[in-house]
């Protein structure tokens, strides 16, 4: 299959590839997919004052899955938690010119965003003080 220029670029030069420590304050982690399905996406956000200041990904999957998650990290940075929740897989499909058989790769990226946001929210609810303590240190 022929890949779009943008997919190839993300593949060769992944943006924000890497990991945060899961326990770190303000970090939300989403892991979706399964090795048996041939795709696993880990997406992490770092939130300060309700804004995503940094994002990282690691992906096991095809080039389109890698590009979708790499693109997602770019889009997440600078967005508020609420804005981030509105990112749609169809926007990823459009930006990367994904063919129909690769739409599920973008769905996975949307799921990973949602999962990371939920994880962040859950952590913030469980220990709301820790975050403010950390941001003042």
């Amino acid at each position: 299959m022929a890949y779009s220029e943008k997919v190839i670029d993300h593949y060769n030069n992944p943006r924000n590839m890497g990991s945060f420590k899961k326990e770190e304050d303000g970090v939300g982690t989403g892991i979706v997919g399964a090795p048996e399905c041939g795709d696993v996406m880990k997406l992490q956000i770092k939130v300060e004052n309700d804004t995503i200041v940094d994002a990282k990904f690691k992906t096991f999957g095809c080039g389109s899955a890698i590009a979708s998650s790499s693109l997602a990290t770019e889009w997440l940075k600078g967005k508020t938690v609420e804005e981030a929740g509105k990112i749609k897989n169809t926007e990823i499909v459009q930006e990367l010119n994904l063919p129909p058989v690769k739409i599920h790769c973008s769905v996975l990226a949307e799921d990973a965003i949602k999962s990371a946001l939920n994880d962040y929210k859950k952590k913030a609810e469980e220990s709301p003080k820790v975050e403010s303590a950390a941001s003042s240190s």
């Binding site: 880990k42 690691k58 992906t59």
Partner: peptide, 21 residues
């Protein structure tokens, strides 16, 4: 770039992980 490689390197047994298939 692989989250699986990272987990394996951290000593996580991938077979015991509950995946969101």
């Amino acid at each position: 770039m692989s989250p699986l490689y990272e987990m394996a390197k951290e000593g996580v047994d991938l077979k015991t992980v509950q995946w969101a298939a």
